[in-house]
Design a protein around this nucleic acid. Structure first.
Length: 492
RNA sequence: CGGGAGGUAGUUCAGCCCGGUAGAAUACGUGGUUUGGGACCACGGGGUCGCAGGUUCGAAUCCUGUCCUCCCGACCA
């Protein structure tokens, strides 16, 4: 099979699909809009999940699990939330099949088995969770509730794309309840910072923290905070969200607590989530035409060792040395793979692991052994150099850190070079079409203007950056006065 | 749901216009030679040509219907 990857210049979406499929991360499945996450891709997700989970626990959260099915009446309770998700819900209406009397070997839905109340397959879990919290919370002593769940959700999207938008996806959703508005807002921002920390320091993808405009806000939220990243094709991608829900869900599900003065109050809520979309972000942000480029901190395989030998005798000698090196690397906590598969030749393996984005490759043959050296190749810069075997473990440990840092720097340099100020409409349109990336421009603050700009250019306001610099100016579309710039971009 | 492309071997695709016994590359199996950037030779296995009708002596090929997939839009983490 040809393993060549379509060049980015040729067709960006084909390039992306090739990376994901040939990089062994995932594939299309038999189910419309759903993907199969392959073992290599899942290992990557697991590494991301584990790192995030530790961060959640370090900030005082615990994990729980709530049902996949949400009775329709519960789903309806918070009106805005229900309305927002209504058009992408999958619904269970029956609980049984039976043999088709007209066609042997076929099944039909048993009309006798119609559910009295339909079950919505969760597109998000606020409804079922807040219905539960009602029973958990009586007093201020029960607060805060800081719960997270790792789950799958279903959103019946019209058009899907591996990892970036699939009908079913894996994610994490945190749902917290607090005694005061201030505390809930603090939690919302705290979790946004956790996300930003993770995406930047583990995934090596720089993000912009900000607040969504009213029209881009999560259905049912008072405020939606987000982190926005830039992909290599100049399009933006929302990589995480954290919502301040106010008392909307507490009121919808009647969740009240007695405060210290024995007064009944509605609780204050937050919810926050990141999904397998992060894997897509990782792919789009770092990869090249040779395949994936994975940051060392979350790469399933950090170092691959390829032996080079002629005949069994040489292989034994190389094996022996690799065993020593492997032991040293493992002691440093480095995830390694020794690929001594005799059916594939070294050149094939080199290309294969490059495609899979393994950060560091070691190649060892008898020729190196004679000089007590080993060849080290890094995936991100494709640099190769020869290092003394005596110091290889320490060298690799340092190299992994360097790759992690340099991948972040490279992505940040690109991102920073693609935040451009636009002072007027013509400039704005030109920048969108010719340069892409984030465009920082004045906006009059109205939803109407936002809508028109979206219609005309497909660009949306990605966010109003946190701690945004205040400056007076005029809206690039309407010319009305504005007190700050916001970030526009075409987005996934 | 609109617009485009496409469904033929595990995979990528040719064959279709102009009907006549199903092809290539690659992958797979066996044996051998190989092994420092996707090796080579020999032999071998593998496809009701998406599905259903129709035309015809004869259909992968022509006609009608239908299902599915991908890409571009509308919707969205």
């Amino acid at each position: 099979m040809s393993k060549e990857i379509t060049s980015r210049a040729t067709d960006y979406s084909q390039w992306y699909n090739d990376l994901v499929i040939k990089g062994e991360l995932a594939d299309y499945s038999a189910v419309r809009g759903c993907m199969v996450i392959k073992p290599y891709g899942f290992a990557l997700w697991e590494n991301m999940r584990d790192a995030l989970d530790r961060m959640f626990k370090d900030t005082g959260h615990v994990n729980a699990y709530f049902p996949l099915f949400v009775p329709k009446s519960l789903f309806e309770a918070e009106e805005k939330n229900a309305e927002g998700f209504a058009k992408e819900c999958a619904i269970v209406t029956h609980y049984r099949l039976k043999a088709d009397p007209g066609q042997k070997g076929k099944l039909i839905v048993d009309p006798e088995a119609k559910l009295e109340e339909e079950l919505v397959i969760r597109p998000t879990s606020e409804a079922i969770i807040w219905n539960t919290y009602k029973n958990w919370i009586q007093s201020y002593r029960d607060l805060p509730v800081l719960v997270n769940q790792w789950a799958n959700v279903v959103r019946w999207e019209m058009r899907t794309r591996l990892f970036l938008r699939t009908a079913e996806f894996l994610w994490q959703e945190g749902h917290t309840a607090h005694a005061t508005s201030e505390e809930a807002v603090e939690e919302t921002v705290k979790m946004l910072n956790v996300y930003a920390d993770f995406v930047e320091n583990w995934m090596a993808v720089p993000v912009i923290k900000g607040v969504k405009t009213e029209s881009e806000r999560f259905a049912g939220a008072v405020d939606t905070y987000c982190i926005e990243a830039l992909m290599q094709d100049g399009k933006a991608l929302q990589t995480g969200t954290s919502h301040f829900l106010g008392q909307n869900f507490a009121k919808a599900f009647d969740v009240k607590f007695s405060d210290k003065d024995n007064k009944l109050e509605y609780v204050w809520a937050t919810s926050w989530g990141v999904s397998t979309r992060l894997v897509g972000a990782l792919v789009m942000a770092h990869s090249d035409d040779q395949g994936l480029v994975l940051p060392p901190k979350i790469a399933p395989i950090q170092v691959v060792i390829v032996p080079i030998y002629k005949g069994e005798d040489q292989k034994r000698i190389v094996d022996q040395k690799v065993k020593e090196i492997s032991t040293q690397l493992k002691e440093l906590g480095i995830r390694i793979k020794y690929d001594d598969n005799d059916n594939a030749r070294p050149g094939w393996k080199f290309a294969e692991y490059e495609m899979k984005g393994v950060p560091v490759r070691l190649a060892l043959g008898v020729r190196d052994l004679e000089k007590n050296e080993i060849e080290v190749a890094r995936r991100d810069s494709k640099e190769k150099r020869v290092v003394s075997i005596d110091s290889i473990a320490v060298y690799v440990e340092g190299l992994l850190k360097e790759i992690q840092a340099s991948m972040y720097e490279k992505a940040k340099t690109y991102r920073d070079a693609h935040i451009t100020n636009a002072e007027n409409w013509d400039e704005f349109v030109k920048l969108l079409d010719e340069k892409g990336g984030f465009i920082s421009a004045h906006w009059d603050g109205t939803t109407e203007t936002e809508e028109i700009i979206k219609e005309k250019t497909k660009a949306t306001i990605r966010c109003i950056p946190l701690n945004n610099q205040q400056e007076s100016g005029r809206c690039i579309y309407s010319g009305k006065p504005s007190s700050q710039r916001v970030l526009f971009a075409r987005a996934y």
